[in-house]
């Protein structure tokens, strides 16, 4: 496995495959860049470490500026406060459900559009494709889009967060490319057996494109999880806010009462950091497992449909 990986490195291949000993200059070069990139990686995660360490640090340590990227003086009061404020756990559950619903709706719409458009015998395929692609370049703008959503009566409903973005043409094109790679003679065989197109799609095409479907579903899920623009535009009751908007409100309005100040070990910074950490947590937990799908996803996008 390491040999294949190394053979992809290119320039220094002949050094490793030769005597097996690098010369001193090559060793220094590799060492330098190794250290450099470890430092870059550490710098990249310092902001996250900082937030986590502030959230666990004691008031005195924070006020005296002793906390850098490691907690000083253990303290979990901020978490108690953050979890109490704004029904944090309830919002988290709601956001997860909303994210799953959005991913499901988006995926169904994407597949329903991409499967027929991937077929080569569809006469109107080219025209419908153009019809879709044009929307990627003609953006009506914030106000007309808002007026449209309002005309449909979606303002201040959960549908405003699900329907206006129910399908991404860009992702649909990626899905179509994946369907195109399937040999259509498979479909022919199924049709002769009397399968409907829906069954062909569901039982032949979808199972053959699971990696792409998983990747796109994750893309949709993350963009719903992180999206705030539509909530700011279309929603003004905080009961429909996701974690992101709840966090935004908490960051803007966190206050420590005099009583809390005297009995606990927290500062507003503390509570902000704790709520940021709590909001990041789901993403930090799933990231190592799903990261490779996203890396693949970038590559999928690079293939022109």
């Amino acid at each position: 496995m390491t040999t294949t990986a190394k053979s992809m490195q290119g320039p220094q291949k002949e050094n490793t495959s030769g005597s097996g000993v690098y010369n001193a200059s090559e060793k220094r070069y590799q060492f330098f860049w190794g250290v450099f990139f470890i430092l870059v990686s550490i710098i990249a995660i310092i902001p996250i470490l900082r937030v986590i360490s502030i959230s666990f640090s004691s008031k005195d340590a924070i006020l005296r500026g002793q906390v850098f990227i490691w907690p000083v003086g253990a303290n979990t009061d901020a978490y108690t406060k953050a979890l109490k404020t704004g029904n944090f756990m309830g919002t988290m559950g709601y956001s997860v459900l909303l994210m799953l619903a959005a991913a499901a709706i988006n995926m169904v719409m994407t597949i329903l559009m991409a499967f027929p458009l991937a077929r080569r015998n569809l006469r109107l395929g080219g025209a419908i494709m153009t019809f879709c692609v044009l929307t990627m370049y003609l953006n009506p703008g914030t106000i007309p889009t808002f007026l449209n959503v309002r005309d449909f009566g979606l303002i201040n409903t959960i549908w405003a967060l699900l329907i206006p973005g129910a399908m991404s043409v860009y992702n649909m094109i990626i899905m179509r490319t994946a369907f195109r790679a399937i040999d259509e003679s498979l479909y022919e065989a199924a049709r002769i057996e009397g399968c409907s197109e829906f069954r062909i799609m569901w039982q032949i095409a979808v199972p053959l494109t699971v990696p792409t479907i998983a990747t796109l579903a994750l893309f949709y899920a993350v963009s719903r999880w992180n999206g705030i623009e539509d909530q700011i535009y279309y929603i003004n009751s905080s009961s429909l806010y996701t974690v992101q908007m709840t966090l935004k409100q908490m960051i803007e309005s966190i206050a420590i009462s005099a009583e809390e100040g005297s009995t606990t070990q927290m500062t507003p910074e503390n509570v902000k950091a704790a709520s940021i950490t709590l909001s990041m947590l789901p993403m930090l937990i799933v990231y190592p497992f799903v990261q490779r799908f996203f890396t693949q996803g970038i590559m999928l996008g690079a293939v022109k449909g």
Partner: peptide
């Protein structure tokens, strides 16, 4: 390095502004 640098891409701007 890839893992560390790609991570912030998955954080919302609300979280990033907090950070």
């Amino acid at each position: 390095t890839q893992l560390a640098l790609y991570l912030p891409n998955f954080l919302s701007w609300v979280i990033i502004s907090g950070i």
